[in-house]
């Protein structure tokens, strides 16, 4: 599942995911007709619309053995919100089946495939931002860190306040842009203080927010999706 942000704004992430998984011997399929998991509508309270989009998504992935999502919040949406959202619809059973087969990328690599050693696409220090939905939603802080610590070529430095929100929050970022930006500024100061060349995250939303702020300040720090970082030259 490439996700709407991944599809439109960060296609390289999907390309990296495809390459990574194929190198590990995984057959990668990309069901056509994907749009969005429905999270933007769901989180804003438009649940009828979200259910309509979710039901489509459930149908599209009916035949997949595992569904890998390079975004913690979208994986959370499918795993934890779909079953309740589609409870009173014909898609209910299929939604529950999908929830049980859907993984955020780092979780899939570490916990399903048992793969932890990758070559970094950049060298030097990297720091990691815990995306809220991956950390507190899917309760995952270890899988991405395992991958980052074992990276060949890059060194992980922990980010102070790494578990704090970057201020994205979907529509929150444009409903209360001033608050969102002030939360972001704090995050960016912490990132810059680590001296890392890259800030790594597992969610396109956070990368859009942090990348947008770093770009605006013309910072040297680059936002990088975990998939892009793991996608180094083959050994």
């Amino acid at each position: 599942m490439v996700t709407c942000l991944g599809d439109m704004f960060f296609p390289e992430v999907g390309v990296s995911v495809t390459r990574l998984l194929r190198r590990l011997g995984v057959t990668v399929e990309f069901p056509q007709g994907q749009t969005c998991c429905g999270q933007p509508m769901f989180n804003s309270g438009y649940h009828a619309g979200a259910a309509r989009v979710a039901a489509r998504t459930v149908e599209l992935f009916r035949d997949a053995e595992h569904v890998v999502v390079p975004s913690g919040s979208c994986a959370y949406m499918v795993r934890h919100e779909y079953p309740a959202l589609l409870r009173d619809t014909p898609a209910r059973a299929e939604a529950e089946r999908l929830a049980g087969r859907t993984y955020e990328l780092s979780q899939f690599l570490v916990r399903v495939l048992g793969k932890t050693r990758f070559k970094a696409s950049v060298t030097g220090r990297v720091t990691y931002h815990d995306s809220c939905h991956l950390l507190r939603g899917l309760r995952e802080s270890e899988a991405p860190r395992t991958l980052l610590r074992n990276l060949d070529g890059a060194e992980l430095v922990e980010l102070p306040g790494g578990d704090e929100c970057c201020g994205f929050g979907g529509s929150f970022s444009v409903r209360l842009p001033e608050v969102s930006t002030q939360i972001l500024d704090k995050k960016l100061r912490n990132i810059e203080a680590t001296g890392a060349a890259c800030v790594v995250a597992c969610d396109s939303g956070c990368l859009m927010q942090m990348g947008g702020g770093l770009g605006r300040r013309r910072s040297k720090v680059r936002p990088l999706h975990l998939a892009e970082l793991l996608d180094g030259d083959e050994r």
């Binding site: 490439v2 991944g6 599809d7 296609p11 990309f30 056509q32 994907q34 970022s173 444009v174 972001l184």
Partner: peptide
């Protein structure tokens, strides 16, 4: 509201879906 303080990524010239045929 976004771009007052943050850059917005542009929609890619080729989205992932549009690239899939060559990746397939």
């Amino acid at each position: 509201e976004w771009t007052r303080t943050r850059d917005l990524p542009a929609v890619a010239r080729q989205t992932f879906q549009e690239r899939w045929p060559e990746l397939q």
